[in-house]
Design a protein around this nucleic acid. Structure first.
Length: 825
RNA sequence: GCCGAAGUGGCGGAAUUGGCAGACGCACUUGACUCAAAAUCAAGCGUUUUCCCAAACGUGCCGGUUCGAGUCCGGCCUUCGGCACCA
């Protein structure tokens, strides 16, 4: 074999062989335990970045490790291939989105192959293929049939840059998640999925997800935003109307001094009609409606409002209170109307101050020291009710339930649970997505495309030049169709689906990717799912992960799958940063994976990225650190090449009792390393410490290598196990060495080593000697020395004597195999 | 404002159950090899005092519990992330 490690040739050779041999092909096999490891599939932007390299390296180590442990491992890859950038390329450069996408996919696949990842490429999924989106459309119809898809005119988020609407989850701080431009509100008829029907289950089942990071669960919990309270109505006698309000503080109802409506509230129209200042009110409403999402929902912006001129009656005390409209009430939440209690709500306090509305104190603090005059902000804590009719004197917690009971008894309302979560807006006014399979017929109305006619295919050669108008809406051949019910002339829906729909079920398609009768077979999906280990970025904490959970629950209720949750364990990897910030073109701190791989090889790239930091933490890229990883692999290569002749003797069995002392020590380090690496990969995903312990093993090997007549059996054991331990991290190099000096088969098909507990035990151990908790000396003793003898030996040490001379020994603490602490006075 | 995570050498990080703080790697210094350089091998490497043994200090800050605290408890500070007019 070569004395020097030259990765380029080796890596190419094995990548080809693995592909030719279908080395990582997976089949359903009930004789082995199954394990499904999955990395979030990428958007085909054209090139891998370091974040991908990190993501796939983590997944590949887990996949290879589990396979060596005897699991039947499913480890697939695919592409989230619909989306805006393909369409932007079409507008800018005149290329077809499909051509652009497929050529990007080819390039990224080549880069993934060059990483040496153990994917079963036969299961690859590309969401923009008609064979795939046919089923995405099929799911839309399923949701529709279950009453979970509906079209509704609503005030929705609109991105001017992308020329399309966005779901709430896709608006980050008032900006578009993709292009970062400011989001505005528009009134449009759009398709929604009723994710709110599943709000309680999505929240409740978070408890099931023991293998998810706490912070992701907290983020989902906040997003769902469950609150408990009451809904009840104020009468508007002058108009014979009612205003239902929702409140989490029903115990403050006697403090209501006004009622306030969102400007979008349908009742406003009626209340203001014919008022002398109607025009003024209308212009205020118009102004509020036009605010961006950011301005509208910022808690910092001033609370503005106008009196409608109408009055409502508080059902508790019959008081007439003015009805206002305002910018601070959201129409989408609760009932779009709020009871104003300035004394016990911070926002109402500010609003009342601005417009000189009256305040009434109805909850006093437990000491009873509050007065309206002394208050300079709202009192929102628990306390005792005052000025509250029959509820006066009641503790606020108790009053809550008492008042809800009263509301229900009087039949003016009921207890209600409310969620912050809104329905998922899934239509997009874009071309490069799965068309929504709906036809509008003048006679039959909204009609689903029959299942046997799916997929509704995207037309080719459409006009992208216009940009702002969806190309589908202009494609007459596509739009004009016949009604599947009556056969008359009809028009197709021209919106496509949010790409998050495509990614909400791809992980199930992998289990049976070529099925043309169903999205997946029962047996396949239930054998492999749920995903045992999912790996991806934290940016999907809500978006993709919430939608996928929702999808899974709907599919379970529809009887299509038998599991509740799609992802059993979730690992959220940190970002790859350089010079203190995320790699980006604009900052000019991008390191190209392709360059690193061509210079050092994929094994080095993988090793560095796993060694530099634990997976959940951000990783600082360091070119010299890469050199270090490369140096380590060269070191492994060199020491193994030195023992090529010893290996040829093939001594796989030997008498461990006959080992010399230093050989025994090497064997001990080997077995400690097997233990450590097994635990670090299997239990903790701490690849960095797993690698460092392999480095220690190699260092220990170097310490002994020049000794004459080393035991050939020990050398064989160390090298075989070293290659196995390193195989998940550096698959090419270990495979090459394995084939050269050990066996014809693959190291990746070898059995993961098992450590020998006896070999890890030290005969002699070093005991730390402390006096009053400070380390004063050390002592090497036999591991089985009795406590009494250990204590005696410790006290006899001269250096310890110096510290205890002339003092009284209060007590001696002995921690077996660790330390002796002598407490003196 | 609310919720969450994190603060350890020059740097990335380790210490898994309260028991030698700094494993492993990077950088740096020195030596060997070499005509020389690179590569490689070997040694050193928290700070201060001393430069022989050694001593004091040291894990964001202040306090506590304990024979013993990076780790547990209380109170802060800083950084990052999420949510934020949700009634």
């Amino acid at each position: 074999m070569e004395e020097r490690y030259v990765p380029q040739g080796i890596e190419k050779k094995w990548q080809k062989k693995w592909a030719d041999d279908y080395a990582y092909k997976t089949e359903l096999d009930r004789s082995k335990p199954e394990y499904y490891v999955l990395e979030m599939f990428p958007y085909p932007s054209g090139n891998l970045h370091m974040g991908h390299v990190r993501n796939y390296s983590i997944g590949d180590v887990i996949a290879r490790y589990k396979a060596m442990q005897g699991y039947n491992v499913l480890h697939p890859m695919g592409f989230d291939a619909f989306g805006m950038p393909a369409e932007n390329a079409a507008i800018k450069h005149g290329v077809q989105p499909a051509d652009w996408t497929y050529s990007n996919i080819e390039n990224m696949k080549r880069q993934q192959r060059e990483m040496g990842l153990s994917y079963d490429w036969d299961r690859e999924v590309e969401t923009c293929r008609p064979e795939y989106y046919r089923w995405t459309q099929w799911f839309f119809e399923l949701f529709y049939e279950k009453g979970l898809a509906y079209k509704k005119k609503a005030s929705v988020n609109w991105c001017n840059e992308c020329n399309t609407v966005l779901a709430n989850e896709q608006v980050i701080d008032g900006h578009c998640w993709r292009c970062d431009s400011e989001v505005i509100k528009k009134d449009l008829a759009q398709w929604f999925f009723k994710i709110t029907d599943y709000a309680d289950v999505l929240l409740e089942d978070l408890k099931e997800l023991k293998g998810w990071p706490e912070r992701v669960k907290t983020m989902q919990e906040n997003w769902i935003g469950r609150s408990e309270g009451a809904e009840f109505s104020f009468d508007v006698p002058d108009f014979s109307e009612k205003i239902p309000v929702y409140t989490t503080c029903p115990h403050t109802v006697f403090g209501v001094t006004y009622v306030v409506l969102a400007v979008e509230h349908p009742l406003v129209e009626k209340l203001i009609k014919g008022r002398e200042n109607e025009a003024e009110i209308r212009s205020f409403m118009e102004r509020v409606r036009k605010l961006t999402e950011l301005e509208r929902t910022s808690s910092e912006s001033a609370k503005e409002g106008m009196f409608t001129g109408a009055y409502a009656v508080n059902p508790f005390n019959g008081e007439r209170v003015p009805i206002w409209i305002t910018n601070y009430v959201l129409y989408e939440y609760g009932t779009g109307a709020v009871m104003g209690v300035p004394t016990h709500d911070e926002r109402d306090w500010m609003f009342a101050d601005t417009y000189n509305l009256p305040k009434k104190l109805v909850v006093n603090n437990p000491e009873g020291t509050l007065t309206l005059e002394s208050m300079d902000h709202a009192y929102v804590d628990a306390g005792v009710l005052v000025n509250s009719g029959e509820f006066t004197g009641m503790d606020s917690e108790k009053a809550k339930s008492a008042i809800i009971e009263w509301i229900e008894a009087q039949q003016v309302g009921q207890k209600r649970v409310n969620y912050r979560l809104r329905d998922w807006l899934i239509s997009r006014q874009r071309y490069w997505g799965a068309p929504i399979p709906v036809i509008y017929c003048p006679k039959c109305g909204e009609v689903l495309v029959p299942k046997e006619d799916l997929p509704v295919k995207l037309p080719e050669n459409v006009n992208f030049a216009a940009g702002s108008v969806s190309p589908l809406a202009q494609a007459e051949d596509f739009v004009n169709c016949t009604c599947p019910k009556c056969g008359g002339k009809a028009r197709r829906e021209t919106d496509t689906m949010d790409t998050f729909m495509c990614s909400s079920w791809y992980y199930m398609r992998y289990t049976d990717p070529k099925n043309d009768k169903a999205p997946f077979g029962d047996e396949q999906v239930n054998y492999w799912m749920p995903v045992d280990q999912y790996i991806g970025g934290i940016e999907h904490a809500i978006l993709h992960l919430l939608y996928s959970r929702f999808f899974t629950k709907v599919l379970k209720d529809a009887g299509l799958v038998n599991f509740n949750e799609p992802f059993k364990n979730l690992l959220t990897q940190g970002m790859v940063i350089k010079d203190g910030s995320k790699m980006s073109k604009s900052k000019g701190n991008v390191v190209s994976p392709e360059e690193i791989i061509s210079k050092y090889g994929a094994d080095t790239a993988r090793l560095f990225i796993l060694f530099a930091a634990p997976p959940e933490r951000d990783l600082e890229w360091n070119d010299q650190g890469v050199e270090g990883a490369y140096r380590f692999l060269k070191r492994v290569w060199r020491i193994i090449s030195e023992f090529e002749d010893v290996m040829k003797q093939n001594v796989s069995d030997y008498d461990t009792a006959a080992l010399a002392k230093d050989e025994k020590e090497l064997r001990r380090v080997l077995h400690v390393t097997i233990k450590k690496v097994t635990e670090d990969i299997g239990d903790r995903f701490n690849f960095n410490t797993a690698i460092s312990s392999i480095m220690e093993l190699v260092n220990a090997f170097y310490n002994i290598k020049d000794k004459k007549d080393l035991n050939a059996g020990l050398i064989y054991e160390v090298i075989v196990d070293l290659l196995k331990l390193l195989a998940p991290f550096a698959p090419h190099m270990t495979e090459e060495l394995w084939s050269l000096i050990i066996a014809d088969g693959s190291v990746h098909k070898a059995k993961w080593p098992v450590y020998d507990e006896k070999a890890t035990i030290l005969d002699e151990i070093e005991i730390v000697l402390q006096v009053n908790g400070k380390v004063r000396d050390k002592l090497v003793v036999a591991a089985d020395l009795s406590r009494e003898d250990l204590e005696k030996a410790a006290l006899a040490k001269p250096h310890v004597q110096d510290y205890i001379a002339g003092k009284t020994i209060v007590k001696v603490i002995c921690v077996p195999k660790k330390l002796v602490n002598i407490v003196v006075k």
